[in-house]
Amino acid sequence: MSPTVAYLLYALFALGGAGVYLALPRSQARPTHVAGLLLGAGAIVGGLMLLGTYVIAPSSTESSTNFFFYLFSAIALFAAARVVTHPKPVYSAVYFVAVAVAVAALVLLQGAEFLAIALIIVYAGAILVTYAFVIMLAQQTGVSVYDTRAREPFAAVVLGFAAMAAIAGRIADPNALPATALAPATASLVAGAGEAPVTPDAGAEAQAGNTISVGWSLMTKYVVVLELAGVLLLVGLVGAIALVKKKVPRDVGVDPEAPLGQIGKEVEPF
């Protein structure tokens, strides 16, 4: 990749950062958010064009896959920008769901069906519903001003976009990557098996089905990591229960004259 392309890439990130900065919600309504969104949209389109020209086009042949890649990338990027720039928290959560679904579609295009559907079930289905749940309880009527304005917009945008530009520049530099990483066939396997390096028998398993190959690699190569993650979740579960559990007095006598609705009396389990 020539230095020109790299500078173009950094310029696009600067543009995107400026767009997001302008579009971030403020305490007073300002007319800058439209300009910000336009700038951001320009950055997204430019970034995708750059990506398509220099990274994807040489290694891909199917144009329909490419079309869906651009479509879902654009949706994911736009929705991600709206997550941080939308003034209403509930809409941020909904856009977050859109990001999760669009990313799942991108993963699906790479042939990692299991990972895609796991992303939808776990992220969009469980975690984000609880987010939405909490936000809605907090924000039922009348949105408070403290929740709808960005605290440190400039620092956040500069830090975030500088980090993203650094990572993107590193990824887009072909010398920095292992030789196999961009070949389409192996890329799908890598995506399918989490961070698994590709082994010859993994290729044979992938023929049998993506779900099966993920299962094999989880249960053979990564079984220790899997078990540790399970234990970690269990510890989290026990901790959560220990935090919220309240001791219910067991020996409170039932007073038939007590008013209705008093908590702490005992009844038979149903």
Binding site: V94, V129, A132, G209, T211
Partner: peptide
């Protein structure tokens, strides 16, 4: 005929909450 037929249905169930 999806390789993840059952999980697809579970994923839809998860989205139905919205």
């Amino acid at each position: 005929s999806l390789d993840i037929g059952l999980l697809y249905l579970l994923g839809l169930g998860a989205m139905g909450v919205y």
